[in-house]
Nucleic acid binder design. Sequence first.
DNA 1: ATAAGGGCACCGC
DNA 2: CGCGGTGCCCTTA
Length: 107
Amino acid sequence: MADAILQTKSFGFCALEMMEKIPKGKVTTYRQIALALKNPNACRAVGNACNKNPFAPKIPCHRVVSSDGSIGGYAFGIRDKIRLLESEGIKIRKGRVVDFEKKLFRF
DNA sequence: ATAAGGGCACCGC
DNA sequence: CGCGGTGCCCTTA
């Protein structure tokens, strides 16, 4: 566990912390997080941090979607990600978040 | 919608 | 320390 934190350390830890702050029923984008971390181009790195997410169930990585409102990816499977989102009131339509801009949470 | 390029952090060598 | 491969990405053509 501790080693997991050490692995993630700086960037990953920060990204994960941001996700942890996402309120239920809202979603954010990898871009927003990368931007919040002052690295607008590190959007991919954010995704990588999620993928290697040491706190799988603790951090709601499913509340993070692509900047265009598409679901993106999910280490445990897209189905589960959609499932979780719908469980929180987020509707998915054709692989896209319904009212994405409205459900979008900004830091 | 598909293709190509850019860019950044993590990991193993 | 550097190199190359990988990934829940983004943007432009």
